[in-house]
Structures are given as C-alpha cells and as structure tokens.
Design a protein around this nucleic acid. Sequence first.
RNA 1: GCCGAAGUGGCGGAACUGGCAGACGCGCCGGACUCAAAAUCCGGUGGGGCUCACCCCCCGUGUGGGUUCGAUUCCCACCUUCGGCACCA
Length: 837
Amino acid sequence: MDKYTPKDIEAKWQRAWEKEQAFDVPNPADPAAADRSRKSYVLEMLPYPSGTLHMGHVKNYTMGDVIARFRIRNGFTVFHPMGYDAFGLPAENAAIKTGLPPAELTKRNTENIEKQLRTLGVSIDWTRELATCDPEYYKWTQYFFLKFFERGLAYRQEAAVNWCPSCQTVLANEQVVQGACERCDSEVETRNLAQWFFRITEYAERLLEDFKLLEQWPERVITMQRNWIGRSEGTEVIFRVDELDLEIPVFTTRPDTLFGATFFLLAPEHELVDKLVDGTEREAAVREYVAKTRAKSAVDRAVTDREKTGEFTGRYATNPVNGEKIPIYASDYVLMGYGTGAIMAVPAHDQRDFEFARRFGIEVRVVVSGKREDGTTVGPEDGRTMETAFEADGTMVNSGRFDGQDNREGGRAITAWLQSEGKGRQAVSYRLRDWLVSRQRYWGAPIPMIHCDRCGTVPVPVRDLPVLLPDVDDYAPRGQSPLATNPEFVHTSCPACGGPARRETDTMDTFVDSSWYFLRYTDPHNDEEPFDSAVANYWMPVDQYIGGVEHAILHLMYARFFTKVLFDLEMVDFQEPFTNLFTQGMIHYKGAKMSKSKGNVVNPDEHMNRYGADTLRLYILFIGPPELDVEWQDQGIEGAFRFLGRVWRLVNEVVEKVEPRRYADYANEYDEAKRLVRKTNRTIAKVSADISERFRFNTAISAVMELVNDAYLAKDGLYRSEEGQGVLRFMAETVVKLLDPFTPHICSELWQRLDHERLWQEPWPEADERYLEEETYELVVQVNGKLRDRVQVPSKAGSEELLEAARTSAKVARHTEGKEIVKEIVVPGKLVNFVVR
RNA sequence: GCCGAAGUGGCGGAACUGGCAGACGCGCCGGACUCAAAAUCCGGUGGGGCUCACCCCCCGUGUGGGUUCGAUUCCCACCUUCGGCACCA
C-alpha cells in the first residue's frame, strides 16, 4: 500500500475539477422562466485581499464549501462564486510605505489569495470572479451612486462628522468604535465638513420591519441591528422663544412629565445657539463654551460620569402646556445627532437633568409620584429633598388638569391635547444616522459628481462612466483626497453648461462596494448594466450567507439597505439579500484572538504545506461548534492528520482485499457484520442531519471517526467471509462519501481506487431505515433517580416487560430490599426508575 | 449602567424535546510490533474512598436556592468571562 501523500493527491484533484469545470454553473437560457426550486446560492463574505489568507478565512471558506458540496450532492444547482473587496486603506497605506501603486499591490495580493483558495480546494465557479477595484466593477458602483442621487438618497451636506486624524479621513458612525477609529484605533475628532451621505434613515422603518423576513438569522445579529437603529416612540413638543419669535421642537419619550420641565437645553452645536445669544451679554460666555465643546474629543464627550456642564443663554422658552417660561442653556450632554438637538429638561424624572439642575440650582418639580424600587415613596413636595431622579411610573401631580391620572395614560392625553392645539404630535425617533460615504483617500471609487460654479453640484452622465481613478504621485493623506493633487483629473467641464468645472475628489467608502457585489456575481461580465434583472432574480436571494459576526451591523445593514433601494428602483424583485445567515466564531490562539499585533497568528500555509488542505479543513471544523469562538491547538491538527491516515489505510486495505463491486445482501447477517451495517447507516443519518440542520460539522466528523474506529475493530473478522467483505466495502464507500464535503481531495482519490469516478457528482447516501433500529437496547434502571444497573431488553418490550426486567436485577434488589416501592416510573426506550422509602 | 452569549476532566469539546454526564479528538499511562526508535495497532484515563483485580460506595457540569421520581438541560438570585450599546432625552 502506498503512503498518504496529500500534496500529490490534492494537486491532482484540483486539476481535475478545473479541467472538468466541475463547479461552474452557467446562467439559465431563460432565467425568468427557469425553475428556481433546485437552485442554491451559497456565499461567504468576500475577502479583503491583504496578502495572505488567515485562519478565519480558512474556516469561512471551508464551511461554505462543505455546504456547497453537500447541496450539490443533494441535487441542487449550487451557485458558489468568489471575489475580492479590493479597495481600501491597507493597500493604500502599504503603497505609501513601499511606493508601489495600490493597483499593482492589490493585483499581486488578489492573485495570491486566489492561489490559496484553489489550494484549499473550495468549489468555486471561477468564471464569475470579480474585484471591486476593477473599473468594470466600480463603474457600476458609481452608477448606483448616481441612481441614489437621482432619488434624493445621496446628498452633500455640511455636518459635524467623525474625523480620524491618523487615517486623515472622515468615517461613518458605524466605523467609530468607542470613540475610536475602527481601523487604526486613533481617537476620533469631530469636524464640521461638507460630506456625502446616503439617506439610510429613510429606510429605518423598513430595515426594522423586514427582520420578519429573516427567520434564519442569528438572533444576536438582529438584536444588534435593532439596537443600532434604535427606534423609540414619543412626542414632539414645540417650545417657543417669544422674544425672537422662534419655535424649537424637542423630542421626548416622557410627555407625561411636561409640567415638570424647569429648564431647556440645546446641544452646543445647535444652529439656534448663535441666534439666541447674538449681541447679548451672554454671547461671549456661551461662545466660549461652544468652542470648548467642539475641541473635546468624541471619547471625552462620551464619558458619562463627568460633571454636567452648560452655559445659560439668557433666553427663555415657553412651555406649551402651561405657558411657563423656562431658562435655555447650552449643554454638551445634549447630542446634536439625536432627536432635534434640543430637549426639555425634567430634573425630577431624569437623572441627567437632575444632576444638571442640582449643579445650577434649578427647581426640581415632581410631577409623577409613586414608589421607588426600595419601597420609599416620592410625593409632590419632594423636589427639594430628593437625591436622585424618580424615573419609574406613578400618578401625575402638579400637572394641572391631568393630576391624578396614571402617568402613561396622562402622557397620551397630553400628546393628544398638544396635537389638537398644533403644539406637538406623536413622533418616532431613531438613533440611526445617515451613512457618510465620502472619504478623503485615494484607493476607492471616485464619487461621480462635478462642481460647477454656475450649476452647482452636477452628476456625471451615465455614458461618461466610469470616472477612472487617476494616477497620482503621492498617496499620502493630507486632509483632502489625493485625487485633488492631480489637476488633469480635477479640471473638467460641466455636463450641464459646458463651462469650466471641478470634479469631486472624494472617493467612496469601501462598504459601498461590498453592498451589491453579490448581485454582480450573477452577471459579472455584463457591460450594459450592473446586472440583468431576470438573472439576478433567478439566483438571488442568497440562500446561505456565511461570515464573521464583526459585520453584524456594518456590511449586513448596508447591504440590506442597498437591496431595498434596488427593489424600489425595480431592478430586483426581492427585499432582502440574504435569506439565511450564519455567523462563525473566531479562532483563538494562546487565549486570545489571533492578531498580528499580538503575534499569535497561525499561518494556514504552513499547515497546508505540512499536512495538506484536507487535514487543515478537517481540523478547523472539528475543533468545535462553528458559531462559537474556539481555541486552536497545535497538537490538534496532528490528530486530524492521523485520522485521515487511518481512513487512507482502511479504505486501501478494503480495495486490496475485497473484489470490486462485492456487496452482500445484509438481511441475514451474523452479528458482527450486522453491527457494522447498522453503525454505517446510523452514521449516514447522523452526518446528514448534522450538516443540514445545525451546521454541526464537529459532531458530524466525530460520528465518522466512531464508524472508522468500529471498522478497525471488526475488519479482521469480516474479511474472512464474503458477506463480511461486502459489509466492509459498503462501510468504506460510505466513509468516503460522507467525508467528501470536508476533505474532498483524499475522498476523490479513494473513490477512484474503489473503482468509481466523479465523487463530487455522486448522490448523497441515504440511511436504510431497516438498519437504524436495534433489536435490543440497554435499559437504564434507577432507584430514587440514581443509576443502579443496566439491562438488555428487546426494543419492542412493553412497560410491564421492562418493569419485570428491572425488578430481576440483583443490583437493584440490593437498594430496594426492605424498603417500600412507592412509585415506578417507566420510560420505554430509556429507563425504569423505582422510588423507594 | 443596559442588552446578548457562554461557564462541563489536564486541554478542545459531546450529551437531539428534563432520563446512563464526559461521545470524538488532544495529552498522558500501559501493552503489542521492533535489535532499538519512529510510525502503526490494542487497552486504560473526572475526583475521592474502600476489607481497591475493573467489586462496591460517595462526590461531581461557575455559586446558592427551587420545581421534579429524576436537572448540564427548566425557574429564581448571584459570581466570572466574552461580545454589543452606552449622557439616545
């Protein structure tokens, strides 16, 4: 018998798959009429080509490959494409360091990644490969930008935005983590800049609503998105500044406390702040406060336990419900980005307002009385003495004609009254903000807009797309896009009036690129349009999407948003891009997540060289449940390799000792043989269920290991009879068939040696019902819930029979002797329990 | 602070609807093969106790309670770890 040499075997079968175009799936001739019931779109999140694959990628693509191969063999037409999220900062930063153009560097990296993916043996339709940095691709990204612009969904506005001083670019809210840049961890600053936004807030309600279409999404991903969108219901109340004849709306979730508003706050950035203090004696102090706030970093400002600060504007707002005039302050605990940037402050019933009021000596007026959690009560006169705000529900007091009402009901009544008076209305507020998509960096898709002094901001006509990314000499970020340094790029003529004009020099956030790539796969070479709708409607939505949970909000929410816009544009006929989502856990090493900075990275290439792709694939799935974080163990992979060696020797021995195509009729087998037939069938059932139902690859693999272990123990006896040999051949073929999705190379090789061909097309085995049931089983016998004995009983035995069998056990008798049996519990198929006293 | 997930041998992890805790793998121990080693094959391996040949008993799934004939599984409280959000009015 020859040795198991993964290198040769893997190269051999990778060549075979390529030559046979085993995984290429053409589009149907008439996609609109084609039957969609047997198609399956299996997709893993596309990699960012950062040089080499890491273990997370290996896990991701192996999992996708198992699903894809399993579905192919279950008769599905599996659509399984691959591409590269090739724009982005790292390539640009590397370019700055090495001087190599990002395009060149990226090309080199994508080629390397492709090679690695092929070495890993994933079943990809390579004819559909794409890179988001190719002009043939980003032409259409720009096209969508124009479509969004047409619909008013893309707009440019000056706003306080997140600025990363190290990346020298603005960032979307989603890319700021705890006040720091998601990429480089630098503290993010706030700057007022004119930037491009996508109006994702307009889709907030639909993004929430359509969670109901996503039954197979992990609950936590949905929860994270739901929290991010942050819908809250409340009331908009209009306060007036009579002196200046101004109206300032505020949003509140507690209209019931309106009578308790004793002051009014504006975010320091609020545009009205200027107006309120202009030319007054408070002007200097307020302006200084505003300036101080602006200088504060996002991190500092987010600290919640620092003392409340603010500055009186000298103006008063009129409370619509009682005509009371309350002082207006500017304070930095009011955020410009949420609600209206202004709030009514009710210190008695909001802890933050309470702290502010105590500090500034403002009246605290209780308008809801009730019981605190600690049992003490808060009454109408307690405003002066209370030490914390009372935020719970109760009865309304100090609230004029609403006194005595339950506060929730009273809140509704107040809202209704405001509405009838034209002084307020029911309102919904979202935490979600519009998606900031412009970046002051080089390596991205140029935003296809032109600034003309006469016509304003004008879109580039579709026929002029793509707006090609020009060459520049210097990629270094200097606070404006490097594209601005290329005069030939910047200077152009206005598409509207023909006069001289300047191109927009910002590029798009790379999350725009990855918000529609799954659609381009369906029609990747179309140069007339981004994709043919009928073709996209045929393959989409993605039946199974697999990726890291780190994209729970960013990519997954943006892609959902994009799909909904495309639905509204009537380019697709579905509202959600990914029907099922599986989020994989991370691989830890030495107690921490693998990262270059920690120096605990395990390089997949090394292991592929040493043990082969099959071993790596097998181990990475065997290591633990795919959705959880797991710990990489260096010696563990050795075990996976040993197991494949065991399979190799077992199957080859069967090939040598058993004539081809010898199968026995197992119906009348002797015990030894029958046992292995049963085990084989049970393994088929277990592996099939584990793969299809819960992605439990680890237990599927261990089931095959058990079968192989049993086979080793039984084989020497079985070789001696023809029937036994038939059973062994059946076992060997089954092992190869079941293992194929995990370790396709060695399985294809063994399948060939078993005198068959094209395992990847072989129908998935089905368990024979007749062999799933045993004739007898081990009945557990307990006394008072404690295990005392096990007895063999016939499978068909009834309760009486089981009790009888249990009673005859000597071990049981020892524990029941001299005691009274008060109860007998019989669970057929499982156990008998005697309760004694 | 709020929301969510998870705590099981020396380690990674099993246990489907409440019914044999520790499957499978790693590591370790022992045996076979060998001049020897590696590889391979076979066996053992949660802790403690005992009048310890594998007979038997007790304890044991983060902690403390509860429901139940019976709880890793359900309920309550708490502790720890990880992830998300965090002055959102």
